[in-house]
Nucleic acid binder design. Structure first.
Lengths: 347, 347
DNA sequence: CTGTTAGCGCATTCAG
DNA sequence: CTGAATGCGCTAACAG
């Protein structure tokens, strides 16, 4: 059996309470006593039984996810994953809730953050909007001693505890590199469809894409970025226009969430020869990939992200370290040939 | 607070012991009583606190991983991941051990399996060799009521409880598809380097690769498979030969673990124009990818696989269901642009 | 067949 | 500053 608090109490010649005090380093222990206990801990190779500790604390962790509202399928997928995780959350002493706010709206996000602080949550995960008032709100969260993680879109330098999401610069670079290799020597410019430059993930993807494209052996023009606000209608119009006006268009990189509009324009346009790379695997992009309308889908697994955010928030709340390796969110590259089974991703 | 066994005992008008009996459905409860208790459980929406249950049981789960021995870097990586998981295993009441056996050797594997049964383990994870005596051994494991999962290479139809690893047919298909697209119109045959057809993963990858290659718009010859037994020396010799004898070679698909030999032959050969696709991200393949000697690395994350195997084995041992979505091992596609950070994968 | 009781390993009162 | 006692939610003897 591995050593328990009793063993170390016996070995150090003190009581359980004292052991507990040095374990959780709480005040009220003389330095000598503390040293004795620490020696015993080291000697026995004690490791705390987290499950038992949580049981004794009978503490619950109310965590809140703040997500953009609207019909963005990826965000709705994230929300679904939070609810799914909520089913199992009972076992982990975690209470999950979701708040939605208008997309790309810093003020609304700030309101939700302040409400969460007031509500006394144990941790917050939010899709960050790049605005100074948001950074200020995050500072208030820190001051309240509440862990905060950014989700999907980061806000480095804001003081957030952790970022849960892919490396978006690398994602853009990957898109650019695949685009270049798939097109090979074929001539023609490529178009880029984004949502808004007010979220950092879109900006970072663009940056990586441009860098990779310009590093390709054969030079290729990249047309000015089209901003569709992640709205299907606007995206459709922008792409339809582009297809009509640029007859020698060779490829499209869609780095935001306007994919429904893009796909509609593509199937109407009848240009099966384009190389199309998009982000996020949804029912729509999956179907388009299978049909050959899309060549590559770059994806971040919403389920992994939600579970990772929960683990990190809990670890921070308990003052525990996070396992960086386990919490790294990978960029999935899907082509028609390695598409995972179910249409609902998981079951 | 969520309901506890006390609540349901009170509501059903029985004692804790009786509640526990129906919860773990043990004998010794009249049908009527059982029904009353079940009604209370349903009414209160009770969910058992697994942590508390395990604490009370103070049961430990000795799990054994049976891996091929030798200097196969991927297998050594797996072993390292098991040891790493072992550090945290204390907290999860799990005791991990590793047994190594000669590669591609069915009899040795059978010996290790029978030893594990005799040793009274709570679960077994093994890299399967495709041989009838192995299936027979797995049947004995089942009979002993011990959960068994195949790792990396499956043995469907053997009665194993679960397979932890990637879909190898899809992996081969992905390799073929990328090979075709990257080569485009460039002429020349491609070579395939394998370890041995006695493990099913190699066979499946080949199958998928050939299917994808033959589905490409432009036909391309695939040379007869080179079997290097996952040995660096033999692999080196085979590839060096091939490079010398096939001057118009366009690409190489290495679906086994002979990558060190392959890489040596490639850097000696000075043929920077080949499209090279290999499996498993190791220090060697990572360096070769960065240098441009290799174009694509298909990978299965050893850390994920080990953690998944542990979760599944524990769930089976407790008679709990497994979350198929969470346990699906994804095929990672790495190109130079989306290579994750550290050289040691995690930290 | 059913109930009582005593822990599992730890945190937390409340006394001393 | 330190210790003894109680309970978290559940399981497992042991009685009845």
């Amino acid at each position: 059996m591995r050593p328990t608090v009793h063993d170390i109490a016996a070995k150090a010649g003190v009581s359980l309470a004292t052991v507990d005090r040095v374990l959780n380093d709480r005040p009220g222990v003389r330095a000598v006593t503390r040293a004795k206990v620490e020696a015993a801990i080291a000697a026995l190779g004690y490791v705390r039984d987290v499950a038992a500790a949580n049981l004794a604390k009978s503490r619950v962790y109310p965590l809140v996810f703040i997500l953009p509202e609207g019909d963005n399928p990826f965000m709705r997928g994230l929300e679904a994953e939070v609810r799914r995780a909520g089913l199992h959350s009972a076992a982990e002493r975690t209470r999950l809730s979701v708040t939605t706010v208008p997309a790309f709206d810093g003020a609304a996000l700030v309101g939700a953050i302040d409400a969460a602080i007031a509500g006394g949550v144990a941790g917050i995960a939010a899709v960050a909007v790049d605005a100074p008032e948001v950074s200020a709100a995050i500072a208030r969260v820190q001051e309240a001693g509440i862990p905060f993680v950014t989700l999907v879109s980061d806000l480095a330098g804001s003081g957030r505890d952790h970022f849960v999401g892919v490396d978006n610069i690398a994602a853009g670079r990957t898109a650019g590199s695949l685009m270049g290799r798939f097109l090979g020597a074929r001539p023609g410019p490529v178009a880029v469809l984004a949502g808004s430059m007010r979220v950092r993930d879109h900006g970072e993807r663009l940056e990586g894409f441009l860098a990779a494209m310009s590093a390709m052996p054969q030079a290729r023009a990249v047309l000015p970025v089209l901003e569709g606000q992640d709205d299907p209608g606007r995206s459709h119009a922008l792409i339809a226009d582009c297809l009509a006006n640029v007859p020698d268009l060779a490829g499209i990189y869609s780095l935001g969430a306007g994919n429904r509009g893009l796909i509609e324009a593509l199937s109407a346009g009848g240009r099966g020869d384009l190389c199309v790379i998009v982000h996020e695997l949804t029912a729509e992009t999956r179907a388009a990939l299978q049909e050959g309308l899309i060549d590559v889908v770059l994806n971040q697994d919403a389920g992994h992200e939600v579970r990772s955010a929960i683990r990190v928030l809990r670890a921070k709340a308990d003052g525990l370290p996070v396992n960086a390796g386990q919490e790294r969110i990978r960029l999935d590259i899907f082509i028609k040939d390695n598409l995972p089974a179910g249409p609902d991703e998981e079951n």
